[in-house]
């Protein structure tokens, strides 16, 4: 058995460990373009675990669900 798949860390990571737009590690690399894009996009990856979230965009706001970390709204 493996403890991680698709890059998920074996232990829950701190919030913000992953970029919620591109799904790459938030601490390394450069994400200013991601931050700029996020002004007109909902998040796609869970910032805790990097899983792709189920995202519903609504006329006003959005919701994003990570199977492990629950729902966030914006």
């Amino acid at each position: 058995m493996t403890t991680s798949d698709a890059g998920h860390p074996a232990h829950p990571a701190a919030p913000g460990a992953w970029c919620d737009r591109c799904g790459e590690p938030a601490g390394t690399g450069d994400h200013p373009a991601c931050r700029a894009s996020r002004e007109l996009e909902p998040p796609r990856y869970c910032a805790h675990c990097r899983r792709r979230m189920k995202v519903q965009v609504l006329p006003v706001g959005w919701s994003a669900v990570c199977v492990a970390h629950g729902e966030i709204r914006g």
Binding site: E39, L40, E41, V57, P59, V60
Partner: peptide, 13 residues
């Protein structure tokens, strides 16, 4: 079209 789109966000209505 006002508000958000299908997978991306728009300006506030």
């Amino acid at each position: 079209i006002v508000g958000n789109y299908l997978t991306t966000l728009g300006r506030p209505a």
